[in-house]
Simulated assay, not measured.
Amino acid sequence: MKIKVSGIVELSTIDYPKKCSAVIFLSDCNMKCKYCHNYEYITKNVYEMSAEEVFNDIDFLFAEAIVISGGEPTLQPEGVIELAKLAKSKGFPVKIDTNGTHPEVIEELIKNNLIDYVALDVKCRFDKYKELTGYDGDIKEKILKIIDICKKNNIFIECRTTFIPTVMGEEDIEEIAKTVKDCNLYAIQQFEPKDAYDDEFKKIHPPKPKELIELGKIAKKYVDNVVVRSFEGEIRI
C-alpha cells in the first residue's frame, strides 16, 4: 500500500526523549491550527511511498528510534500500522505524535505492541478548539480515552501545549492540566510566531521563559511530571 508522506528527517535529537530518531512526517491534517508552522508544507508536499520505500530513504547510521508525525498520522491508520510494524521488525522503538482525534488508531497500535511512546497535542482550552483549530468534535473525551488506554497498557503518554500569549492565559493551562493529570509528562512549549500559518499570529510575541515557568508551576499542582520547553532548552518544574 502507498502512504502519503510529506518529509523525512533522518536524524533528530529532540523528537524522542533520550534517543536519536528518524522522523517520518505524514501528509494531511484534520485541524487547521492558526499557529501551525508546517500546515502548508504537509498539504502541498505529498509523496506516495510504501513503508519499505520510506525506510529505504533513511540512513540509519545514528537513529535509535522512529517517530511517526504529521500532519495527523492517524488519518492514515493502515499506513501508520505498516510503518510501525516495519520499525519494530528492525528493532526500533516507535513514537507517534497525534492531535488525539482518533483514539481507536492508538488503541490498535497498542493492542498489536507497535508503539512505545505517544505524544498528544492538547491545543488549547477545550471551548476554544473550534476557534483555534477549526476542529469541532468531542476532543476532550478523545484525549481522556487515549490517556486511559496508554496508562492501562504501560505506554508512556506525553501531553503538550504550545502556549500562545493573548490567545491563552493561566486559566487555559490550569484547565488542561486538570484534564490530563494522569499523563506521564505534561510539556508547555514556547510559541514561535515567525512561521505561523495565520498572519495575525505572526504578530504575537513569543512568551518569555520565565512566564512559561510560572505556567509550569500552575500545571504542577495537578500533574506530577511537568517540563517547559523554550528556545533555550528544556526546564523541569
Results as ranks from 00 to 15, higher is better:
Met1Ser: 07
Ser6Val: 12
Ser6Thr: 10
Ile8Gly: 09
Leu11Cys: 14
Asp15Ser: 09
Asp15Thr: 06
Lys19Phe: 12
Ser21Val: 00
Ser21Glu: 02
Ser21Lys: 03
Val23Asn: 08
Val23Lys: 07
Ser27Cys: 09
Asp28Tyr: 15
Cys29Gly: 02
Met31Lys: 04
Lys32Val: 09
Cys36Asn: 01
His37Met: 02
Asn38Ile: 14
Tyr39Pro: 00
Glu48His: 11
Glu48Gln: 12
Met49His: 09
Asp57Glu: 12
Glu64Pro: 08
Ile66Met: 15
Glu72Asn: 14
Pro73Gln: 05
Thr74Asn: 08
Gln76Phe: 05
Gln76Lys: 04
Ala84His: 05
Lys85Ala: 04
Lys85Glu: 14
Leu86Ile: 09
Ser89Asn: 13
Ser89His: 01
Gly91Arg: 06
Gly91Val: 04
Gly91Cys: 04
Pro93Gly: 12
Val94Asp: 07
Asn99Asp: 08
Asn99Trp: 00
Asn99Thr: 03
Gly100Asp: 00
Thr101His: 02
Glu104Gln: 06
Val105Gly: 10
Leu109Gln: 13
Asn112His: 15
Asn113Met: 03
Leu114Tyr: 12
Leu120Ser: 11
Val122Asp: 01
Val122Phe: 13
Lys123Glu: 02
Lys123Cys: 03
Leu132Ala: 04
Leu132Met: 14
Leu132Cys: 00
Asp138Arg: 14
Lys140Leu: 07
Glu141Ser: 15
Ile143Lys: 01
Ile143Cys: 08
Ile147Gly: 06
Asn153Cys: 08
Asn153Phe: 13
Asn154Gln: 13
Ile157Pro: 14
Glu158Trp: 09
Arg160Gly: 11
Ile164Ser: 00
Ile164Arg: 02
Pro165Asn: 01
Thr166Tyr: 12
Met168Ala: 03
Glu171Met: 05
Ile176Gly: 10
Ala177Pro: 04
Ala177Asn: 07
Val180Gly: 08
Glu192Asn: 12
Ala196Thr: 11
Asp198Gly: 02
Glu200Asp: 12
Ile204Pro: 14
Ile204His: 15
Leu212His: 08
Ile218Glu: 13
Lys220Ile: 02
Val223Ala: 07
Val223Arg: 06
Phe231Ser: 15
Glu234Leu: 05
Ile237Thr: 13
